[in-house]
Design a protein around this nucleic acid. Structure first.
Length: 804
RNA sequence: GCCGGUGUGAUGGAAUUGGUAGACGUACCGCACUCAAAAUGCGGCGGAGUAAUCCGUGCCGGUUCGAGUCCGGCCACCGGCACCA
């Protein structure tokens, strides 16, 4: 009989679904294991061949854990709010809800087709009111705990999406999603105070089992720097507060710079003799997009605030104050002390504006460029009481001096900004707050959640920058829950990342209407044991969800500080030419086509065999055949019942080794070499006919990778139960070793021959065997053996010198 | 500019972490089966050389009995951050 993959795969998928073979059981006596993949955004295009890579990898892990006796939670769901769906709906005059429904149905059937062992009863959909009730609930909790606040601020505005973006969503000055220009716009926005968690998000990384590049990327994004806050007196009376990482260079501060948006400018407006010039500069800076600001980075621009001067607290000198957009309003205090001798940006500005440059750290040539010492052992000069000290000592000395005078203190700053949490679009969770002129912001009357998304006539984004919901006056106008007076609902919706910040908790208890997750469930499942996802989410979803989880920990909803114990990441599947797969390049491979031609098991196998799991790998249409051939060979070996449940002596050692190799490789995500090992075993079975016991071992090892064919062959062998429910096979280390070993013989470090010696042979015996070798004996003629190096069971190196 | 990563046959990639470079697969070549082709099975496959041998893991140098692996200096490509004081 031929290997009829289509029929076999259908048969077993139906069987698993009917029997709920992969259902997770909350409260089971077995040890629990929670394996998680990032739930997909159900786009209109359906799955492409990149999706199954992480899915298959963790499916393999989940299946192996089940065989190892764990109660496994391996769930799936849909992150379905978001712009692509909304844009599609607008274009095709459909309701986003309908588009979402259709896309989810398509994704579901494709995921079923690939035979993943998801617990489908736990499927979630972020756009389901029963789900987003709890997304809204979390937001309200944050609001009530002072972590959500509304403020008018310059935000990133995508000119095409007509929507605000988080910093994390702006890439090289353009919209991460559509690539359009992003400009700065003053808007009143809901914010989440993720910065309050910056230190914890940083510290707790240390104990997590995340791959290193994820940790460093998050650390860089959080961007902690230590230094001091310093107060400068001004001739206007107000203090100017700056942040600096180099308080040791205070003697070299020859001027001050404030961000163009700095609040003191307004306060000092009356005193400024060049107010028109200042206003003009402010306006030109405000008009610049982020992109332009960074583009023009080389040329420093600015304007002096004439009429007010600052006083350097250590030199007592009056120094000028400038506005310049190289100082960012959103970092530190929005103002700096400029030390042109030792900061290149300050140096550039000082040169452009003819300002004095003073050397306070010795070792460079400040007439040529700013001197930024590579280490902190450089010596202070022109710095009064710091003279002669190293930079290392001068920093704390200066901080203590400032503290003593009440002029400053030690200070920590982060690059991380608060999370802009409103979007002016329709297809998102409504923010459940109402505004009353008298009472301010409050949860809606009756505090009833979910606050469902009303149907509107048009989903089009508006040109005035307001959400489409703002046009729904019936819905917008409501009553104040405090005073009963007229109030208005918030019309912005939440960003895409809201629903995905906590979905892993919902999987633990997806049908609970009383709580976002029940105590029993969360105490049982605890946290995700292994989470795999894309690097592109490192500073977005992954950081947001850690923040969200820490907040839920603080209010007692979850028992762990961190959501994910382990985080790994997969490389992208590229098109045949090594370029990214995309519709416009026309190089997208549709998994349906591969499944139709070769079957799901072949696709799963190939996508895991394609290369190093962590690295990008180009798709190769002809190489898929190799995996199909392998399964054909397995089929031909095992389709007819074999005899004998013991391992065949000829195959035994190879089987034990393969069990060890496959088991270890799965744990280390080296799926490609695990498959190579099984291919080798099958090649051996073609030389030495396998017993039924040999085949059992092969089928159980292979079943996490290619579950359908293994289940079928298990049955054809007349074996009991399901292959996928067998215990994971054990290996005996003693049976993996050879009795004899071929070792390399080197002469003066070069490979010259090989000899076979008994395992663990004595060094002297190895040397003797080597010298007895014909080729070696020839090389030794007329030479003296001066030294031998023996590496047990590996090689022997003979050092020879010409005999004199 | 700063921080990561990568560089191995025609090709995707292996290499017990300093110990026989190229496992496994693809492509290609040969043989068997076939009228023939496909499929399948078996064998070959880094380069040069008839051979003995020599050369070979981006480039240059070093450490070592021994380097794809460690160190120093370059080059190329990929990713992240980027006027963060």
């Amino acid at each position: 009989m031929k290997y009829n993959f289509a029929a076999i795969e259908k048969k077993w998928q139906n069987y698993w679904q009917e029997h709920k073979t992969y259902a997770a059981v909350t409260g089971s006596e077995k040890p629990k294991y929670y394996a998680l993949i990032e739930f997909p955004y159900p786009s209109g295009e359906g799955l492409h061949v990149g999706h199954p890579r992480p899915y298959t990898a963790l499916d393999i892990v989940a299946r192996k854990r089940r065989m190892q006796g764990y109660n496994v939670l391996f769930p799936i769901g849909y992150d379905a709010f978001g712009l692509p769906t909304e844009n599609y709906a607008i274009k095709n005059h459909m309701h986003p809800r309908e588009v979402t429904k259709r896309n989810i149905a398509r994704f579901s059937s494709q995921l079923h087709m690939l035979g993943f062992s998801f617990d489908w009863d736990r499927c979630v959909d972020t756009t389901d009111p029963k789900y987003y009730k709890w997304t809204q609930w979390i937001f309200l909790q944050m609001f009530q705990h002072g972590l959500a606040y509304k403020t008018k601020m310059p935000v990133n505005w995508c000119t095409s999406c007509k929507c605000v973006l988080a910093n994390e969503e702006v890439v090289n000055g353009v919209c991460e999603r559509c690539g359009s220009e992003v400009i700065r716009k003053e808007k009143s926005q809901w914010m989440l105070a993720i910065t309050k968690y910056a230190q914890r998000l940083l510290d707790d990384l240390d104990d997590l089992d995340y791959i290193e590049r994820v940790k460093t990327q998050q650390r860089n994004w959080i961007g902690r720097s230590t230094g001091a806050e310093v107060k400068f007196a001004t001739t206007a009376g107000d203090e100017m507060v700056v942040f600096t990482t180099r308080p040791d260079t205070l003697f070299g501060a020859t001027y001050m710079v404030m961000a163009p948006e700095h609040a003191l400018v307004e306060k000092w407006a009356d005193r400024l003799t060049n107010l028109d010039e200042v206003r003009a500069y402010q306006e030109s800076a405000a008009r610049k997009s982020d992109f332009e600001r960074t583009e023009l980075a080389k040329e420093k621009t600015g304007v002096e605030l004439q009429g007010v001067r600052a006083v350097n607290p250590v030199t007592g000198a009056e120094i000028p104050i400038f506005l310049s957009d190289y100082v960012l309003a959103s970092y530190g205090t929005g103002a700096i002390m400029a030390v042109p001798g030792h900061d290149q940006r300050d140096w550039d500005f000082a040169k452009a504006f003819g300002l004095p440059i003073v050397e306070v750290v010795a070792g460079g040539d400040i007439t040529q460029e700013a001197f930024v010492a590579k280490d902190d052992s450089a010596k202070m000069v022109n710095s009064g009481f710091l003279d002669g000290m190293t930079v290392k000592d001068a920093i704390p000395t200066m901080i203590r001096w400032l503290e003593g005078k009440g002029l400053g203190k030690e200070m920590v700053n982060y690059k991380l900004r608060d999370w802009v949490f409103s979007r002016q679009r329709y297809w998102g969770e409504p923010i459940p707050l109402v505004y009353c002129e008298k009472c301010g912001w409050d949860p809606p009357p009756g505090d009833q959640l979910p606050l469902t998304l009303p149907d509107v006539e048009s989903y089009e984004p508006t040109d005035d920058g307001e959400s489409p919901l703002s046009k729904m006056t019936d819905w917008v106008n409501t009553t104040c829950p405090h005073c009963g007076g007229p109030a208005k609902r918030e019309t912005d919706t939440m960003p895409q990342w809201a629903g995905s910040s906590w979905y892993f908790l919902r999987y633990m208890d997806p049908h609970n209407d009383e709580a976002l997750v029940g105590k029993d469930a969360v105490n049982y499942w605890h946290q995700v044991d292994w989470y795999n996802g894309g690097m592109e989410h490192t500073t977005l979803h992954l950081l947001y969800s850690r923040f969200c989880h820490k907040f839920l920990y603080d209010i007692g909803v979850v028992p762990t500080k961190e959501p994910y114990a382990k985080r790994t990441s997969h490389g992208m599947i590229l098109g045949e030419g090594g370029e990214k797969m995309s519709k416009s390049r026309g190089n997208v491979v549709n998994p349906n086509d591969i499944v139709a031609e070769f079957g799901a098991d072949t696709l799963r196998l190939y996508i895991m065999f394609i290369g190093d799991f962590e690295k990008a790998a180009p798709w190769n249409a002809t190489a898929v055949k190799g995996c199909k051939r392998f399964l054909d060979r397995v089929w031909n070996l095992a389709e007819k019942p074999a005899q004998g449940d013991a391992y065949t002596p000829a195959n035994e050692k190879e089987i034990h080794r393969t069990i060890q190799k496959v088991g270890e490789d799965i744990e280390n995500m080296k799926f490609n070499t695990a498959i190579a090992a099984m291919m080798s075993l099958v090649n051996r079975f073609y030389e030495h006919a396998p017993s039924r016991g040999d085949l059992k071992a092969l089928l159980t090892l292979l079943s996490p990778f290619a579950p359908h064919i293994c289940e079928e062959l298990w049955q054809l062998q007349g074996l009991e139960g399901l292959c996928s429910q067998q215990p994971w096979p054990e290996f005996d280390p003693a049976k993996t070793v050879d009795s004899e070993k071929e070792i390399a013989v080197q002469v003066n470090g070069k490979l010259r021959s090989t000899v076979v010696v008994p395992m663990d042979a004595e060094d002297s015996a190895v040397v003797a065997a080597a010298c007895a070798d014909e080729k070696i004996a020839r090389l030794m003629e007329g030479m003296t053996l001066v030294k031998t190096i023996v590496v047990k069971n590996k090689l022997v190196n003979l050092i020879l010198k010409p005999a004199k």
